[in-house]
Amino acid sequence: MNILICGGRLEADYILSAFKKRGNRIVVMNPDEATAELLSEHYDIDVVKTDPTKIYSFELADVFDYDLVVSLMDRDCENFVVCKIAKELFNIKKAICTVSNPNNVAIFQRLGIDSPISASYLLKERIKGESDVESIFKTLSLENEKIVITEIKIGEEFPCCGRTLMDLKLPATGNITCIFRDPEVIIPRGSTMIEEGDTIVIASAPEHQRELIEFIKGSDEDA
């Protein structure tokens, strides 16, 4: 793949180290003298010390028909211009850039930039993802929060999946009181097997709830 990397400092260095190994042809344009020098010392690639927001830079670097441009300039509008020059005037197929204003992710996409990436936007998406994971645990408190009922949906990656309650050796601090396997409600015995997609209901004291959830879910390393 032919790749053009514009601007950036540590990010450019990091991307270069990742892509260099895969037999890609890479050209770097960097407006900063020191960075350009550093990158050309680190890697055996063409580094052009020039401002990537100028059309003549693209001519100089001879990047017509490249497959990918990665733009890591400081300002969002610079990244916009770099991607636009690349796509519209030099026929570069795909444009990826960083944006600092997370609102610009949607705007850049609507204006034809394939993949704008914003750290804050990714963070927000990640937090949304994390809270989705949490939402598979539903909790109900009874008797002034002395008893909690926890509902957990079983995923295939859970260590308890495919095991009987007898094998499971659930900590004595809680009890699986009920399994919902659409459309059936099962009152489990020792021989009942837990299957993917089951919703299990555990009764316990609140202080043991987290420990039980972790037991069912498996710790992160096991998952």
């Binding site: 927001t53 969002d76 509008c77 610079e78 916009f80 211009v81 636009k84 705007i107 609507r110 204006l111």
Partner: peptide, 16 residues
């Protein structure tokens, strides 16, 4: 005073 800002804004106000 900045060409890149001007290009971006022109695309923004017409496109969006």
């Amino acid at each position: 005073g900045d060409d890149d800002t001007n290009v971006f804004l022109a695309c923004l106000v017409t496109g969006l």
